[in-house]
């Protein structure tokens, strides 16, 4: 059971503020959607809260340990991170890429202990990649690749999942498959913090929404409470019809 807590986290690039005074927490059994327009500071917030980017103020901790001081492998065992850019340099097999999820345990592709091999097989199973395990990644479709990256993250057996736009550029069916994978992960006791641009998808799956606008977190709460037509207009500048968890965007405001 892992908990990620950020307190008054600020990130600057030169003199420009990217994230200002952000407070949030994500714990076990929560599916938290991080929502906001491009340039709101979502990616910087994720990176800084994991200690991958230097925070200029405030601090972030995982189970009470300061992220900036946590050794990379220690952190990787507790939080699995899926960045926005997911290049694959070489056409490895699917199983080898997923095996990289065990890096923090000292394993490497082709050199997996029993526990590592088990974790890799379970991750392949959860993401429906059993049949594709021996395929080379340069022969896969975008949707299949997205599942490979998720399997890689799940293989780490981390208690928390942080994903940056995991469903961008996927067709609706694959978007749902990915969201189902996250949903199952959370149902099994994990916690997830996921950047999403598809508001209706976020509203359907998330248990909580964190809204970001111009470097600040402006709102944090259950979907039913925070998803309103006014907020959609304020944050995204769009006219939207909201009915409970259903949202329909009608055009630019």
């Amino acid at each position: 059971m892992t908990e990620l807590v950020a307190e008054k986290l600020s990130v600057h690039a030169g003199k420009t503020a990217l994230v200002a005074q952000a407070d949030f927490r994500v714990g076990a059994g929560e599916f938290v959607a991080l929502i906001g327009p491009n340039g709101a500071g979502k990616t910087s917030l994720l990176r800084a809260s994991l200690g991958l980017e230097k925070a200029n103020g405030g601090c972030a901790s995982i189970d009470g340990d300061n992220c900036a001081e946590l050794a990379p492998m220690q952190r990787a065992r507790r939080v699995a991170y899926l960045p926005q850019q997911r290049p694959l340099a070489w056409p490895n097999t699917v199983r080898d890429v997923v095996a990289l999820g065990r890096y923090a345990y000292g394993a490497a592709p082709g050199r997996l202990g029993n526990q590592d091999a088990d974790a890799v097989e379970r991750a392949l199973m959860k993401c429906g990649l059993k049949e594709l395990a021996s395929r080379h990644t340069d022969t896969l479709s975008g949707g299949e690749l997205a599942r490979v990256h998720f399997a890689r993250a799940l293989a780490s057996d981390a208690g928390l999942l942080v994903a940056d736009e995991p469903v961008a550029a996927l067709d609706p069916r694959h978007q749902f498959r990915i969201m189902d994978i996250i949903h199952q992960y959370v149902a099994a006791g994990g916690g997830a913090l996921v950047v999403l641009h598809d508001i209706s998808l976020a509203a359907r799956y998330a248990s909580r929404m964190i809204w970001m606008k111009d470097t600040r977190i402006i709102c944090d709460g259950p979907v039913e409470d925070t998803l309103t037509a006014e907020r959609m207009a304020d944050v995204f500048g769009v006219r939207a019809k909201v009915n409970g968890r259903a949202v329909e965007i009608e055009g630019a405001a």
Binding site: P72, Q74, A76, Y81, L82, Q85, L88, A89, N92
Partner: peptide, 20 residues
Amino acid sequence: RRGLSALTLGEEAASGIGLN
């Protein structure tokens, strides 16, 4: 050499899986 395998995922994800 193990870190070179990690870099297959790109620098960002490689840091994410625990590479220094």
